[in-house]
Design a protein around this nucleic acid. Structure first.
Lengths: 327, 327
DNA sequence: TTGAAAGCGGTACCAT
DNA sequence: ATGGTACCGCTTTCAA
């Protein structure tokens, strides 16, 4: 059996309380005592049980991180950053993959609620009121989703769209398609809205296609719709769709970017690996993951609602393969 | 505050023990009692605290899943499968990313040991004896790594290499390069060994290059080394290296596969997206993740060491872009 | 079948 | 500065 605080106390010849103090608040015990405790701890290889501590403090030292799909290349960057930051805070991360299913997501959150100090919810699929309800029970930070005044961190999608459309307009495109992602996606609604608004401002015509699933197959499926819309450029809900478009375009004999230019969102790793490389709107995932944990940690520490409970992170267009029409 | 078992007991007019039983072993309480408890549970929205339960049972209902780098496209597939399977068992998953650092890995394992019922270690980077030591404290399943008799699940790397080399030999290649991954990687050693053995058997000449880091940049760096070795085909430690090779080859004006054919390992998503698509040795990641959790669960349940504590999963070559030399 | 009570491994308050 | 002790929420004997 692993050593308990009792064993340490006995070996050190002090009380449990002193051991607990020596470890948690070293300056509340006499150096001599501290020494003896430390020695005993070392000899026994003692590690306090986080779970026992959790029971008595109400703090688990663990946060829940929920993502819709860890295999979606958009998320690992965020997860990694969050994970790293958490470790700096001495927090463990309970990762849950909801498989893109709102019901699973809610169930997972409910199950984990007792085991974590708070949640970072990445692009949660659950309905607003469900999220609000969760927020009542436990600190929560939303990533890539905004629900009322709940603490959340999003990317500046509207500005990303603006950069993308301005780029295409500058290249001479007059008519572009937007391939929509899932209807249920908050981000998709944001981008779609921005596309309409910005296009109008820029005097561009927009053809909306989709929605399609936000993956390679979705892009493949959307390709023919896009072609039928006779546009010279297309903005895809995300890079995977963009990649799917490219693939299908190649099969249909449509050259990219000569015939159609493509701009994606997310700057997933694969976007840089294909040729021509995919122009995309990048989002600072590291910053997002880190900031999410920072914010959650603040909430947990109850440093009463930090000023910036709602952050919007800048996006930036990475121009790669895209060119003007009739090139 | 969330309701506790006490609240339920009071509301139901029974003792804590009865509530506990009604929930854990319903057939040990009279139906009438069970009813009252269930009603109270529902009314209060009671959810037992896993952490309190853990303290008293010694079971946390959580397993630790450690990966070297969740952003490495090889792992999400495994993680996802493991996650899903765990949920079926009612287990939560504590995911830790060791950032490819053996020290971090060990530290993370030690920290989490008290909070989980067991570990699934994906391609652990820690030294053998460290792993053995961990195994003494708590059930552990190794994925993609073999250490003595420890429970582990690996892919049949030797056979994967055999398929790859047989493929290249059949295409007419006589001299191939192997681009090595990290020296510390057990899998790399396996593959390197197999390359030597199989090549000898097939009468192929082998040029070993590297080691390089197992990512895109590593492949880029390796490209020039490979070219200097004047081979017509190359087997890369993994797909990311293969992709890096392709990229650099393009810049150096070397055509793939006309001048050099490439075979990677892992079948990461991006391998199918590039053109020409990358020929690769695929490994059943889902099966691996699932089997890992199954095995660990058995170990935890202490169904004394299941027969197959050491599994080897079949790999299979996916032929895509590769062709013969002087094509 | 049910209830009382003793832990599980810590923390924290209260004395000393 | 230190020790004693009452919890934290649940499970699990042990009696009744």
């Amino acid at each position: 059996m692993a050593a308990t605080i009792k064993d340490v106390a006995r070996l050190a010849g002090v009380s449990q309380s002193s051991v607990s103090r020596a470890l948690a608040t070293p300056d509340q015990v006499r150096p001599a005592t501290r020494e003896r405790v430390e020695r005993a701890v070392a000899r026994l290889g003692y590690r306090p049980s986080g779970i026992a501590r959790g029971l008595s403090t109400g703090r688990t030292g663990t946060i829940g991180l929920v993502v819709p799909d860890i295999a979606n290349p958009f998320f690992p960057g965020i997860v990694k950053a969050a994970q790293r930051r958490s470790r700096e805070f001495g927090l463990a991360v309970l990762l849950a993959d909801s498989d893109e299913d709102p019901a699973t997501e809610v169930e997972v959150i409910r199950t984990l609620t007792k085991q974590v100090d708070g949640f970072v919810l990445c692009a949660p699929r659950a309905p607003d009121d469900e999220l609000r309800s969760v927020c009542g029970d436990i600190p929560v930070v939303l990533l890539n989703r905004r629900v009322g005044p709940l603490p959340s961190i999003i990317f500046d999608n509207a500005d990303g769209v603006r950069q993308a459309l301005a780029h295409l307009a500058a290249l001479g495109h007059r008519r572009v398609a937007y391939v929509a992602g899932p209807r249920a996606s908050w981000v998709n609604r944001e981008r779609a809205r921005a596309v309409r608004a910005v296009a109008a401002a820029l005097g561009l015509e927009v053809a909306e296609t989709g929605p399609v699933s936000p993956d390679f197959e979705g892009g493949v499926a959307a390709a023919d719709l896009v072609l039928a819309a006779s546009v010279t450029a297309v903005i895809a809900y995300n890079d995977m769709i963009g990649l799917g478009l490219m693939s299908r375009f190649a099969i249909r004999g449509v050259r990219v970017p000569a015939d159609v230019s493509i701009v994606g969102f997310d700057d997933i790793p694969a976007a840089a690996l294909v040729s021509p490389a995919l122009t995309t709107v990048a989002q600072p995932k590291d910053q997002c993951g880190r900031a999410g944990v920072d914010l959650l940690n603040d909430l947990i520490e109850d440093r009463d609602r930090p000023a910036a409970a709602r952050l919007s992170l800048p996006t930036r267009l990475i121009v790669r393969g895209s060119t003007g029409p009739e090139h």
